[in-house]
């Protein structure tokens, strides 16, 4: 293997791992919601994108500082997460999983349409930070903007772990995801925990959306499907319901995607990512961390 190819490979892997943290966040969002409700929220990726657009509106209307734009994206997405909960999950019968699943598909299509109409289907500039900063590690360059994306996503994950393991709400969330009946008997309001989980997962999705846009400096309506599909691939690989699984899955997909991009080009990249998904579905359907555990 010649030296320059080797450097390219390392470079692709590093970029992929840094950007993969956004996939990890999306995967965590899917996994959190599945954890407490044992239901998939397919509108999750679209809601994250719509939240990011709320940040974009703040940017375009007030020419706001990037920090404010990112904050608006995160909070906007959290808010939309609550709306999705109320529309698709709160009142649908809990013993018919298809009801909420199809409601969330409807919500995915609806949000997607709204975003496409509002943006006329065109990409808009989105604030990006540390674009020109480069850290040179020998022949491998670490891009400042990707490093920022990585940093923000890691901070979001750390905040989530703090919330889950150091606060009463986190204790309640873990209790509901492990044994919802017993959680009720401990005096935990399961409905409230479910709603909070949608809000928190939404905020994480908004951060992922904002960082996805910040990494390229552009926000495009077509990434709704990308966020959804990547998020689902990540949770299949990591194991649905496992947060560490979502993190590892996200990094793996990020790195693999970039390596395939280098080896086979942009047109074939997704084929290989799907092939990776296929391999996991056939050989290890429970994912890396996983067991699709049964409860009760």
């Amino acid at each position: 293997m010649d030296y320059f190819f080797f450097i390219d490979l390392i470079q692709s892997t590093v970029d992929g791992l840094l950007f993969g943290t956004t996939y990890a966040l999306i995967g965590i969002g899917f996994t959190l919601i599945f954890g407490v409700m044992r239901k998939l929220n397919l509108a999750y990726g679209a809601a994250a994108l719509a939240g990011t657009y709320i940040g974009l509106v703040v940017f375009l209307m007030f020419d706001a500082h990037p920090a404010l734009v990112f904050l608006a994206s995160a909070l906007g997405s959290g808010l939309i997460g609550l709306v999705v909960y109320l529309c698709c999950f709160r009142f649908t019968p809990s013993n018919y999983p298809m009801a909420s699943l199809l409601a969330s598909v409807g919500m995915l299509l609806f949000i997607d349409e709204v975003v496409i109409h509002a943006s006329h289907g065109l990409p808009y500039p989105y604030p990006s930070v540390f674009r020109d900063a480069i850290i040179e590690l020998g022949d491998v360059w670490v891009r400042g903007d990707l490093l920022f994306v990585f940093f923000m996503c890691v901070v979001a994950m750390a905040a989530l772990f703090w919330l889950l393991y150091r606060t009463p709400l986190g204790l309640a969330t873990r209790a509901v995801s492990q044994q919802p009946r017993a959680a009720q008997l401990c005096g935990i309001d399961v409905t409230r925990v479910n709603m909070m989980t949608f809000g928190i997962a939404g905020v994480l999705g908004g951060i992922a959306g904002a960082m996805t846009a910040a990494a390229v400096g552009v926000l495009s309506p077509v990434i709704a499907m990308g966020l959804t599909v990547k998020g689902l691939i990540v949770v299949v690989i990591g194991g649905l319901g496992s947060i560490p699984g979502a993190i590892i899955g996200g990094l793996l997909v990020g790195a693999a995607e970039n390596i395939f991009l280098l080896l086979r080009g942009v047109t074939e990249r997704d084929i290989y990512v799907m092939l990776l998904l296929f391999i996991f579905l056939t050989l290890r359907p429970g994912g890396l961390f996983g067991s699709a555990q049964t409860r009760d």
């Binding site: 309640a172 873990r174 492990q178 044994q179």
Partner: peptide, 17 residues
């Protein structure tokens, strides 16, 4: 119906929720 993946201590603290 204990919380299987929580420590004994956390199970008890959850009881005082």
């Amino acid at each position: 119906l204990v919380f299987p993946d929580m420590s004994v201590r956390d199970n008890l603290i959850a009881g005082a929720f």
